[in-house]
Amino acid sequence: MIKGKSDKAYQGICAAVAILFALICLYPLLYTVFLSFCTEKEWIDSSGAIWYFPKRPTAAAYAKILGSTGVVLRALLVSFERTILGTVLGLIVNVLAAYALSRRNLPGKGVLLKVMLLTILFNGGLIPTYLTIQSTGLIDTVWALIVPGLFSAWNVLILKQFMEGIPRELEEAAEVDGVSVFGKLFYIILPMSKAVLSAICMFTIVGHWNSWFDVSIYIKDQKLWTLQYYVKVNFDNTSGLDQGKLDFLISQGAAVSSITMKMALTVISVLPMLIIYPFFQKYFTQGVYIGAVKG
């Protein structure tokens, strides 16, 4: 392609805007990390105007958070528990349903698909859902965070669509060889839908890890707080929940300020997402379609 002067200028502007936006995305993250390593002395000396990596960094906040209290570790465990259980069980339920629905001429398929569509388009709303979860006895158990979200109509629809695209000849050939239904599922269908499964898996993991709202509604017991909700509680300025907060650690003589503690906690809560991020990157485009409606 021939490039004129105006083309180069245009490319330059585009690059500048894109890089600027990337910096805007990146800097707040870095700033959070900077703050989490800042000593109280440096914070006070510069009267809080620290926008760079602290000159004498300290990991005291991390040590304090992870070391001297079980609260954060417990919250971390609950977060892992709900993420792992929710993702694994959810995949099982949805894959089985999608496989069944991907059979042609399954009697009742049309009705079942319509009901599933209804669950996407219409939901009962918070209060009826709360009452249902209450009457099934899940309040104040970790299952309240897992079970109601196990079935995802959207994931089933996507999986079903994909499975329908797998050539029938493959399955027929396996049937001739005497492979059972489970064999077909494990050795043909699942390996072939690896990409779409990974995308679904990624979004389920991210969704579980990041959710805090359901904890605030269904969980009263502090022992079952997830990490995200614990972070949220620490940023609440309402009093009354003080015993669970980090602030009391500061009064125990950590040489860091309250904001440093909070930022260290925030960094701990996003670290797992940052770690798995590179592994999932190639499934993003597929993921967009999955996330598009669920929002």
Binding site: W209, N210, W212, Q228, V231, K232, T266, S269, V270, Y277
Partner: peptide, 9 residues
Amino acid sequence: FFSWVVVYA
């Protein structure tokens, strides 16, 4: 990939 809690923080 961050939750709103983290963005708020």
